[in-house]
Simulated scan of single mutants.
Amino acid sequence: MTDSTMPAPALLAWAGKELGVPVSVTADAPHPRRTPCGNSRGNPRVWVLRRPDGALFHLKVSPQPLAYERETLALRHAVPALGAGRAPQLRASNPEHLALLLTTVPGRPLRQLAVSPAGEVRAHRQGGVLLARLHEAGDLSGPRRTEAERALWAAADCAGPLLRRAGDRITTAEHRYVRDLTERLRILPPLPLAFVHGAARPRNLLWSRSTEQAGWIGFERARFAAAVQDFVQMSCGVWADRPDLRAACFQGYGRRLLPEERHALKALAALDAVSCLVRGPALADHEITARGRRTLDRLMAGVFV
């Protein structure tokens, strides 16, 4: 690694002090993230640190204060409910550098592994179990409940700016469909609220082949919201071709979505599709663009589940 990819010396010294011994950097792992409404948040930086005894930790620097604040809150107050080895544990935080020192979680991102279909089913079922624990862990009182109750309205507010930016990438009929669908988010009855992961997708779902256990990472978008918001990205992604994974996740989660939640999921998927059609061309990322087009086509054809 070059000096430009290494942590700042002061940051590395802080991590060593927190762990009680000097540490070495063994890997540099950029951790890209994107936001709703098509706005890039920048890329967190993640390094793997090794103690002299061989123990590994992750040093993560958030790209902006909101991501740092959200992940710190999640790691302190909700993520421990997932259990040991199922999510990172916070060893220390450094607000000056927006840095987090985390334990490692066994396994690798599911999307990076060649796992049998049966193994993927087990991973998604366990992922659903863990999401249920996370959703129940947050304290939904006072302003946090208000934040969660307003989450779908906030999502609906994204529709106008997104549709304007999409321009002629979507047809007039698609524009009208997305607008009508997202406006319904404002008139839905109260939906189950939760402390959501915010980026529940295969790249954040870890799977350990040796223990056959799943875990979640990447909590910088965790927040109080409608529980259904945690199922958008997988519904628009891997679940499109694998309904068995969707069924496994909800089996682990312990319940199916309510009819009102299914309506919300369609509207949120429409927003995700338009966001992809904005971001993909801007980033020259054909995979993102294709995902958005496929989701919107499925919605228009009435086959989105």
Rank of each mutant, 00 (worst) to 15 (best):
P80M: 05
V228L: 08
A151K: 13
I288M: 11
P143E: 05
R125M: 11
G142F: 03
A227V: 03
A55Q: 13
A273L: 03
L181N: 10
C276Q: 07
R70K: 05
V238Q: 13
P36H: 15
A222R: 12
V274S: 04
G218R: 13
G167E: 04
V115E: 03
K266S: 15
V228K: 11
A29S: 14
W14L: 03
R122D: 01
A166L: 01
S275G: 15
P7L: 00
P161N: 09
R255V: 01
G54C: 02
A114Q: 15
G83M: 05
C236N: 06
R50S: 03
L205T: 11
S210M: 12
E18C: 00
W239Y: 13
P7H: 02
V21E: 03
A15N: 01
L73Q: 08
C276G: 06
L100R: 09
A269E: 06
E260Q: 09
R50N: 02
V105Q: 13
E174T: 15
P80K: 09
V274D: 04
V23Q: 00
V105N: 14
C236A: 04
P44K: 03
A8V: 05
T172N: 12
I187D: 06
F304W: 07
G237W: 14
I288F: 07
V25H: 07
T171W: 14
C249H: 13
